[in-house]
Design a protein around this nucleic acid. Sequence first.
DNA 1: TACTAACCGAGACGGTACGTCAGGTCTTGGT
DNA 2: ACCAAGACCTGACGTACCGTCTCGGTTAGTA
Lengths: 235, 235, 235, 235
Amino acid sequence: MSNTKSTQRRRGRPQGDEVKIAILKAANELLEEQGLSGFTIDAVATRSGAARSSIYRWWPNRGALAIAGFLAETAQKIAYPATGSAVADIKSQLMRVAEVYGQKVGRTISALVAQGQSDPEALKALLEGYVLPRRDEAKKVLARGVANGELRAGIDFDVVIDALYGPIWYRILVPHAPLSREWAAALADHVFGGLMASPAAPEGVVDAAGSTAPPPARRRAARRAVPQNPPSRGS
Amino acid sequence: MSNTKSTQRRRGRPQGDEVKIAILKAANELLEEQGLSGFTIDAVATRSGAARSSIYRWWPNRGALAIAGFLAETAQKIAYPATGSAVADIKSQLMRVAEVYGQKVGRTISALVAQGQSDPEALKALLEGYVLPRRDEAKKVLARGVANGELRAGIDFDVVIDALYGPIWYRILVPHAPLSREWAAALADHVFGGLMASPAAPEGVVDAAGSTAPPPARRRAARRAVPQNPPSRGS
Amino acid sequence: MSNTKSTQRRRGRPQGDEVKIAILKAANELLEEQGLSGFTIDAVATRSGAARSSIYRWWPNRGALAIAGFLAETAQKIAYPATGSAVADIKSQLMRVAEVYGQKVGRTISALVAQGQSDPEALKALLEGYVLPRRDEAKKVLARGVANGELRAGIDFDVVIDALYGPIWYRILVPHAPLSREWAAALADHVFGGLMASPAAPEGVVDAAGSTAPPPARRRAARRAVPQNPPSRGS
Amino acid sequence: MSNTKSTQRRRGRPQGDEVKIAILKAANELLEEQGLSGFTIDAVATRSGAARSSIYRWWPNRGALAIAGFLAETAQKIAYPATGSAVADIKSQLMRVAEVYGQKVGRTISALVAQGQSDPEALKALLEGYVLPRRDEAKKVLARGVANGELRAGIDFDVVIDALYGPIWYRILVPHAPLSREWAAALADHVFGGLMASPAAPEGVVDAAGSTAPPPARRRAARRAVPQNPPSRGS
DNA sequence: TACTAACCGAGACGGTACGTCAGGTCTTGGT
DNA sequence: ACCAAGACCTGACGTACCGTCTCGGTTAGTA
């Protein structure tokens, strides 16, 4: 990024990465420990041993610093497993995410989202630096699942990801009950398995509620593959 | 509520409702229009015509005022429909929620959640004043669905509600894509209908990942026998 | 005061003095105990058991209340003695004033003066209600002294009173050292007796500085009798 | 004072004196023009062009600022003259003080004293920063007068200073009549010259009231009449 | 004896200033 | 050129009193 050619040295004192790293580390720790309220530029400066001006030299404001700290330190810790089954991979990763987000990372993420509500740049950075890349990853796994035949062909990946991961973010932001692996497992089962006792109901709902976007293609494919699959909505 | 008998008048000058109402109205408008950043006690005072001290007389801090404004003005605007079908009711309400939250109410709610991340009281107020009551309402509808035979008996209402509403909150807080009725309809269909191409998969996942709450029996049974089998999980 | 003829009774409930008295008492106590900073309308109301509005019904603001409390409760406690000698009366009263002002009354007076600096009405009330009447009293005693032949005929009573009582007020307002009877006695002696070793000096000063009020009588007597005697204290 | 060696530079941005000076200047002007009531931190900030936070960085509260403004701007304007005669010096300085205090400085000082009545720190600062140093100066002049033989050896400097300057402070704080050079001259004459028509009276009083500080100049005259009266304080 | 106007307690209300805190900018001197 | 230190301006926070006002309840003299 800011590197010129390595042969071409700039004048003056070269930038020591230690300062930057110390700042990011301190930022991340504060975010984990105290959330947004304790995350003060001054606090970061004090903890890192850096000066406030050094922070502002590299990041334009506290939102940017928060995101940067998160991305540098925490973001990449949750990787997808890669077994044979896409569904199994997703489910186990979902459980792991629920577990991890239930701890310090959750505090951090909720702080970042909160910051984003009054700081469009921070929101954008969070989206582009974390949310969207991870959604892309998830989509790849889902695509593998479709290719495998584990999942129906017509599913809308974005909707599925929202259905799987949305509840987790919801629970860390609106903590009406703690996150747990068990809850995540149940969530995955519900989403993958459906809830209906009788397959006929949804269509009625769709008609009744005026839905304009019935997903028929999937259904047909599904019908082929699982002939006696009763939840055929159209039938 | 906190009134003693109506015959028992309180001493002192009675509170003029106009002021309180004007304050709440102004608070709500500011929250809708500008989110958290524009939501200042001073701004509320100016817009409402009240004095700052009058605001602080009734609400201890800005978080409490934000919640109160939302609850007083906006919260009750989204009611459940009550047709015959529980599932249809939920789905159509979900779509309506998605629609409404996609507009000004969404800004307000996201601001409130953000505020809650650094203000435990505000978070508590939001939960107790809005989230939990609405979840209870939803649970009643779900229970009706189970009683109807529309839904399986074994489902965990909290998980279902998380699966249905979590994604909406997620999307207003992390707006990677706009909310829409269609998206909500698709979401409902996914959750109610499931995603699996083959119903066998989840169990494998469950086994692999150590889930303790697999809902397999129903589906197999349903597939076989189908109709109004209400196999309660506990049985 | 605001009474119309005593025969002409007004309709309605007459004013009960208890409330007024309780208010004044509380006001005075607060002033004595805590000075200006603790003297709050609210504090007075609470301590007296009266309502704030009752206070404002009778006194226009806190300054007026402070003065009224002082005048009603404390002011008249210091009376002049009346022996034969005017000088002795003044001196003993000065000592008594110093003693009394050194205690709670001093706190009260200093608070009132302080209040007066930012409240012209209060200052005026203090002057007219306390300071000037007492100065008039003192002037009478001084006049008696002149009539007696105890004091020179040409003295300016206002200047004398300033010289005698000014230092007391100065010491309670600028407490560089505590008030005491001894100090007051020394003060009286200095003022009544003068400080000069040689009586010639003042005239020179007077001439040089343009004084318009030379006190010649005493000096002449002194000049005659006691030339350059430098009576050391230790002798 | 607080400087370490000049070679030892402090880190960080050095303080720009302009800001501090502008603040003190504004503070002083406000005090002169409007007294305590107009002396608001906000007003000082506005007039000086500085920020409120800059004021609070250097002074802990409004009392401290008031004192500082006075000491920095006004306090040193009144110096003692230094002619041969101590008495003449004191008298002419007293007249000058009366003249000066009768104008803007008087407003300032009365405001400071008033502030001091509810702010012990401010009172202490006024005493230590202004009152006591000036009293010390006056004592030096008085000592010179004693050395000269102009003044009696036994006089208590503190009492004399109270007698001379107390009335001035009294008059600016309790302005029953305006200050003037003439009044000050008369005051000086009274104090230096005494008031008694006959020198005998005070002793009676002294004895009766237990005074321990008899005024001797008069005594010389008295010595004739009451020769062996040795009311030496030390005995 | 009933009326009725003033008294009284309570407290809502619009204001103003306080002192605190954080954010973000700028200016030094040192390395 | 980078960095620590910290002065500086801005603006919101929550608190404390002020003085005004509007209620409901009470009470003593009058009709």
